[in-house]
């Protein structure tokens, strides 16, 4: 699929975007946001903080990111994070379950993770407050600050989902190649 916009290359990178290009191709999200440097300037630190390492474990975060991306049907994020998830220790079956290729309650037995995924489903697709049973189930496993952070994580992922989907940003070929080895490419 052809990206809907031209991505900013290193030679055209605005001053505020340049640090992101110093290590080579920074990827299409930076290449898109670099068109508006003042937005890139705040968005990338935000996204990096919310999606990057925090007090919440990597596995938990990848469950949230991949599940949210699957619900939003983001080609870029589902494929990119299927690859990330595999490389951070999720099983291929778990990846498939998060993508609704098999019912996820057949794969995820841990009550804490089932409560988390139910919460993500409500936050990403719901319209009002999360229903009490879903909220209570999550609160049984996570303190308030984690509930807040997990909710922000769903929201930040949705932002990226729509950015990457709407602009048809291309998935890194290396990620797709790794997924193909396990027949895990999505879409």
């Amino acid at each position: 699929m052809t990206p809907r916009i031209e991505l900013v290359g290193a030679a055209d990178a605005p001053l505020l975007a340049r640090p992101y290009y110093e290590g080579g191709d920074p990827g299409p999200i930076v290449g898109a946001l670099a068109h508006v440097p003042e937005v890139l300037d705040v968005t990338l630190p935000f996204v990096g903080t919310v999606l990057g390492p925090t007090s919440i474990g990597v596995r938990t975060k990848e469950l949230v990111i991949l599940r949210t991306s699957a619900l939003l049907a983001c080609h870029f994020c589902v494929n990119t994070h299927s690859d990330v998830a595999r490389r951070t220790g999720l099983e291929a079956a778990e990846v498939r379950a998060l993508r609704d290729e098999v019912p996820y309650d057949t794969v995820f037995g841990d009550p804490a993770e089932r409560a988390l995924l139910a919460w993500v489903d409500e936050v990403a697709t719901g319209r009002g407050p999360v229903p009490d049973p879903v909220a209570d189930a999550l609160a049984a496993h996570h303190p308030t600050h984690e509930i807040v952070e997990l909710t922000v994580l769903v929201g930040a992922t949705m932002l990226l989902n729509r950015l990457c989907s709407a602009l048809a940003l291309p998935v890194a070929p290396e990620a797709l190649a790794r997924l193909d080895e396990e027949d895990l490419r999505w879409g």
């Binding site: 900013v8 055209d12 605005p14 001053l15 505020l16 670099a34 068109h35 508006v36 440097p37 003042e38």
Partner: peptide, 16 residues
């Protein structure tokens, strides 16, 4: 338009 010396798309207000 060259963007390598672009600071921001926003111009007004000038403060940013």
């Amino acid at each position: 338009l060259a963007t390598d010396l672009l600071v921001s798309r926003q111009t007004d207000p000038l403060e940013r």
